[in-house]
């Protein structure tokens, strides 16, 4: 073992967290923070979530010592637990820490529901949540077509690190890059985060299309129009289209919409089978981010964007609209000029 200078931190030992830890381990020592005893046990035994554990990875559940040892930390946990994780870590996080999260989800301070109307100020991306709840200022995100199972098989892939700070991008690139991962940089932090989030519900829709048994034409239509819709939403909320045309946007969209392995895609397949949300929840250990994403889009009522795919998906999930009726509605929806999001 060569002498390692850096200690990188990863918070969360889910399948993606474990994959990120394995990538980092090629460039330094890695501390992997896990909460469950079973995960800690697994990691110590060198296999966890169907992945081998790199020898440079150490597992811990001691937050204070974790924060003392790592300057660069990658939180990789579901958006629903993100806020609680920050509360636990807050006393030990300082302005000298750099946080690059890999969570493609949003946080909302209110309960979501049919008649809830949200202002964009009360919807937080994970980087905004970090800034609001800790003393860390140098934040970034990692996004792109990075299916954990394929990363574990050491297949080539690309990812993007976005931050307002060039040093965050540089540090992230140094930590992650390898011969099997190309790491791009971007200063459009919010755009990249939003692209990663909005692709979730398009992936559910793609799962539905696949579940019904439709082929590539239908899927391609969904992916391109889904991307257009995401851009309309982002523009209405004050962001530009740049990130959506990059790795975190169209790149991630193609991967997730085509992969039956993705959690969002699986939800779509179940919906096509006519399962209700409650039934789906019983079958899955964590609910896909995309369900929350459509709820949030549904609640952002006052921003004047048109989002037929998200609207219909909402009605399928929450108002028991049948998949057949939904598709008919979508096909009848008036068309607009193609690619009108590029000026």
């Amino acid at each position: 073992m060569t002498k390692l200078q850096e200690t990188y931190g990863v918070i969360g030992a889910g399948s993606f967290g474990t994959a990120v830890a394995n990538l980092l381990a090629e460039n330094g020592r890695v501390l992997l923070y896990a909460r469950s005893k079973k995960a800690i046990e697994n990691i110590k035994n060198n296999t966890h979530r169907n992945q081998d554990i790199h020898e440079n990875i150490e597992v811990t559940n001691d937050i204070e010592s974790f924060c003392k040892q790592c300057n660069l930390i990658f939180p990789v946990i579901p958006s629903d637990s993100f806020r609680y994780m920050l509360d636990d870590f807050k006393p030990y996080l300082k302005a000298s820490h750099i946080l690059i999260h890999a969570t493609k989800g949003l946080h909302v301070e209110h309960n979501l529901g049919e008649d809830v109307v949200l202002k964009k100020e009360s919807v937080y991306t994970m980087s905004e949540l970090i800034l609001k709840n800790t003393g860390v200022v140098r934040v970034g995100c990692m996004a792109g077509p990075n299916l954990a199972s394929e990363l574990a098989l050491k297949q080539p892939a690309a990812t993007v690190i976005a931050s307002q700070f060039n040093e965050v991008i540089d540090e992230g690139q140094k930590a992650l890059k390898s011969t099997r991962l190309r790491v791009y940089g971007s200063n459009e932090l919010r755009g990249v985060e939003l692209a990663g989030v909005l692709k979730n519900y398009v992936a559910i829709s793609a799962g539905i299309i696949a579940g019904i048994g439709y082929g590539e034409n239908s899927k391609a239509m969904l992916i391109t129009r889904g991307m257009a819709e995401s851009i309309y939403i982002a523009k209405a909320l004050g962001y530009n289209e740049k990130a959506f045309l990059g790795i975190a946007g169209v790149g991630d969209l193609i991967a997730t919409c085509n992969s039956p392995k993705s959690r969002n895609n699986t939800v779509g397949r179940y919906l096509a089978e006519g399962k209700t949300l409650a039934e789906i929840k019983e079958n899955m250990s964590e609910v896909a981010e995309g369900v929350k994403t459509v709820q949030i889009i549904h609640s952002l009522k006052n921003y004047g964007f048109k989002s037929p795919i998200a609207d219909i998906l909402y009605r399928i999930i929450f108002n028991d609209l049948s998949v057949e009726n939904a598709l008919e509605f979508l096909m009848r929806f008036p068309t607009s000029e193609d690619a009108d999001y590029i000026s």
Binding site: K90, P91, K94, A95, S96, L131, K132, N133, T134, G135, V137
Partner: peptide, 12 residues
């Protein structure tokens, strides 16, 4: 700082 912690500006 914004979350009420006494901080050292050197950290930034």
């Amino acid at each position: 700082n914004s979350v009420g912690q006494k901080v050292s500006i050197k950290d930034y």
